[in-house]
């Protein structure tokens, strides 16, 4: 469904991605972990066409992701994205945020879009916040609206870019719970995260990225419980025992 083939990317002289390849199959949940600056978010942004890449190819069901090409808008309707800082539209209510894509991009009728949006917000536990503006919602609530907004596009896959990193600790759980539900319904997901518990419980596959390259990949059992590469071991050790 998503094919990342030997991607290279640099910002000026700085090489941030040095030949990354992986496939994501339909219905699969892939978690990308790794230290900050390892290129995790950049890869996700490349898949969504928010960043260009210099070499290699990214294919979504066979169609090449090229930010400079007109086709990018139709590819983006098939792959939604959830951002670290939610990025809701502050001048629109929760309901309007969710309706925006269906009404203006997919040209769904307003009544139909409104019903669907209300249903989705109810699903993420915000059935009572339809008319609330993002400024009146907590971070966890905002991120759940953002997930509903991504779902409203009826995408083939959703990319999550550190969806809980900007949240107060007590709000992380509610977002992860929603993500787990979405995964359980068979959504294809690529999740950049520092939440090892989530990766362990929900991921089908975990990629460990460092220095712009995949160091190790495999099932959560393999990568998280029994990492083979010393750099993976070191990273996990520091994440799990930060005080040592």
């Amino acid at each position: 469904m998503i094919q990342v083939q030997d991607i290279h990317k640099s910002f000026g002289k700085l090489k941030v991605i040095k030949g990354v390849s992986f496939d994501v199959n339909k219905g699969e949940v892939v978690c990308i972990i790794g230290p900050s600056g390892s290129g995790k978010s950049t890869i996700l942004r490349c898949i969504n066409g928010l960043e260009t890449y210099q070499r290699g190819a990214i294919l979504i069901e066979g169609a090449k992701v090229d930010p400079a090409d007109r086709s990018i808008t139709s590819i983006r309707t098939q792959v939604s994205m959830v951002f670290q800082r939610f990025n809701l539209f502050p001048h629109r209510t929760a309901l309007e945020n969710v309706m925006e894509g269906p009404v203006f991009v997919k040209k769904v009728s307003r009544t139909e879009a409104r019903d669907e949006a209300a249903e989705l917000l109810d699903k993420v536990g915000l059935g009572d916040k339809l008319g609330a503006y993002p400024g009146k919602l907590s971070g966890g609530q905002q991120q759940r609206v953002a997930i509903a907004r991504a779902l409203a596009m009826n995408p083939k896959a959703i990319l999550f870019d550190e969806p809980t990193s900007a949240l107060d600790p007590e709000l992380v759980g509610e977002v992860l719970a929603v993500m787990r539900d979405v995964a359980a319904e068979g959504m294809t997901m690529v999740v950049v995260t520092h939440e090892m518990e989530f990766a362990r419980a929900v991921a089908d596959r975990v990629l460990f990225l460092e220095g712009g390259a995949i160091v190790e990949q495999g099932s959560p059992q393999e990568v998280l419980r029994n990492p083979q590469h010393p750099r993976t071991q070191d990273f996990l050790h520091r994440v799990i025992h930060p005080m040592e």
């Binding site: 928010l50 983006r76 939604s80 990025n87």
Partner: peptide
């Protein structure tokens, strides 16, 4: 206008015009 919002709008398939 915060760049993140513009990216979010792009990510749901909006054209620059939209």
């Amino acid at each position: 206008i915060d760049k993140g919002q513009i990216e979010a709008a792009h990510s749901i398939g909006m054209t620059d015009q939209l």
